[in-house]
């Protein structure tokens, strides 16, 4: 399992575009928003948590189809399916690798982008906390979507269509934590719910995704 994790990370790093592409996309979304809504600092600081969350979510979406697609095309997935590790474990490890190469850099870079959007002072900690807590769910839900569409020739668009509605609860609780944090409000409820969604996704979705992959391989 560790081997698979290390291999996926090495592949992402060497193939390029793993860390870089998602982050660059996140930056561009963050830069485009002020062009769209105007440069007033008040408005930007009010919408900053939401924009950063939506930006992180979209950057995460960008690399989802690579979780299984390449391994499916070159036959690795067939070989992994006959290897002595459970498919559920493969899915979980691949989602973790996706998070480490996409989600984690987004979490770490978010404060920098927060500066661009005038995020209020107390908001930084909670922005990072909410992203750190929520992005694993994004990767896991995304891995489920990728597992459903792995057998399809042009699955990318369908993948987005399937995954984005599933992201709604995570996005709502995540931005709520970040927003309340920025405004200095009580955020116990949303942070507990966000953690709940993430834990539930991590606990249950590997089984659904593994079932989908087995169906797609036959």
């Amino acid at each position: 399992m560790i081997r698979l994790l290390l291999r996926d990370i090495v592949l992402a790093v060497r193939a390029g575009g793993g860390f870089g592409l998602g982050l660059a996309f996140f930056l561009i979304v963050t830069v485009l928003v002020p062009f769209g809504v105007g440069p007033e600092a008040d408005l930007l600081s009010r919408i900053a948590p939401g924009i950063l969350w939506v930006g992180a979510l979209l950057s995460c979406l960008l690399s989802l189809d690579r979780i299984f697609q390449l391994d499916f095309e070159d036959g690795t997935l067939d070989l992994l399916a006959t290897a002595p590790i459970p498919m559920e474990g493969v899915v979980a490890v691949k989602a973790l690798a996706h998070w480490l190469t996409t989600g984690l850099p987004l979490v770490l870079a978010a404060p920098v982008f927060g500066v661009l959007l005038n995020l209020p002072g107390p908001g930084y900690v909670w922005l990072v906390a909410s992203l750190a807590l929520g992005t694993p769910a994004l990767s896991m839900i995304g891995a489920f979507g990728a597992a459903l569409t792995v057998g399809l020739k042009r699955g990318g668009l369908l993948l987005s269509l399937l995954v984005l509605p599933l992201y709604v609860p995570t996005l709502i609780y995540g931005t709520e934590v970040a927003r309340r944090g920025a405004e200095g409000l009580d955020l116990g409820a949303p942070i507990a719910l966000l953690a709940g969604i993430t834990l539930a996704a991590l606990a249950l979705l590997p089984f659904a995704a593994a079932a989908a992959i087995r169906v797609n391989l036959r």
Binding site: R14, E73, G75, T76
Partner: peptide, 9 residues
Amino acid sequence: HADGVKSVL
């Protein structure tokens, strides 16, 4: 037919 060989490794 497909070897599952990763070209960057």
